[in-house]
């Protein structure tokens, strides 16, 4: 499980010579929510609303200015763009095994674990010796998921994990994520700007706007009886198929 309590993160623009005033961007401005073990918390909002900042704070890429984060167990992250999230000069085996290797695990145990997680994300064993550029976007994202799973984390932060994939491939990755959650009772913090994807994935949904959570409710409530004006506005903008 994971818990954010009144978390704040402000970015200051540097004071330049002769610049006027101070520029403060309140990327995350007092955010509180919690995610139960084995469930998915979906975070929606427009770009610039602070969703990704929350993801980065959750895994420690960014520090927080104030507030408290509680987390039980390890936490790892899957990024949006699988073209920049995999080191182009490392093989899949090197990418996936690194976290174990730097923890000094034995080689045969590492090999076993890597085979294991690659199986979980439905990649063939032959993938081990290939480089990221030899894969499609969807396969790359599977490699990124395998890398995140290799240390058996309790929480996965999914920062727009399917936004850069073709729609035809999105469903495959989303289903895979759901299966993995069930199998390993993972807790997800699922971030997306796509309300339909969030609806498919989440148990609870938080709607973000300029650094604040304007509404937090169960999926059913958000999508059937939204309370906040902004949530309604977002829902109205879903293109009808």
């Amino acid at each position: 499980m994971i818990k954010f309590e009144n978390v704040k993160k402000y970015f200051y623009k540097k004071d330049r010579f002769l610049s006027q005033g101070k520029n403060v961007v309140k990327a995350v401005d007092g955010v509180t929510f919690s995610v139960d073990k084995g469930t998915t918390f979906g975070l929606v909002g427009e770009s610039g609303s602070g969703k990704s900042t929350i993801a980065k704070i959750a895994v420690g890429i960014l520090s927080l200015d104030s507030g408290v984060i509680e987390m039980k167990g390890d936490c790892d992250i899957v990024f949006q763009d699988p073209y920049s999230s995999l080191n182009p000069r490392m093989t899949v085996n090197e990418i996936v095994s690194e976290a174990l290797y730097i923890r000094g695990r034995k080689k045969d145990l590492i090999d076993k674990r890597v085979d294991n997680v690659l199986g979980m994300v439905r990649l063939e064993r032959a993938a081990k010796d290939k480089y990221p550029h030899q894969f499609s976007g969807g396969e790359r994202q599977r490699v990124a998921i395998a890398r995140a799973l290799v240390t058996e984390p309790a929480v996965l932060v999914l920062d727009e994990p399917v936004s850069s994939l073709d729609v035809s491939i999105q469903a495959g990755v989303l289903n895979l994520l759901k299966d993995l959650q069930e199998e390993l009772s993972l807790t997800y913090l699922f971030i997306s700007h796509d309300l339909r994807v969030v609806e498919f994935m989440s148990d609870m949904v938080g709607v973000m706007r300029s650094g604040q959570l304007v509404e937090v409710a169960s999926r059913e409530e958000i999508y059937s009886s939204p309370k906040d004006d902004y949530t309604r506005h977002l829902l109205a903008s879903i293109p009808k198929l």
Binding site: V59, G60, I77, S84, S85, E98, I102
Partner: peptide, 14 residues
């Protein structure tokens, strides 16, 4: 600032 570097740091790479 590339994500693969962020990812390595998240995983505790020195």
């Amino acid at each position: 600032e590339r994500d693969f570097v962020h990812s390595a740091k998240v995983q505790g790479v020195s």
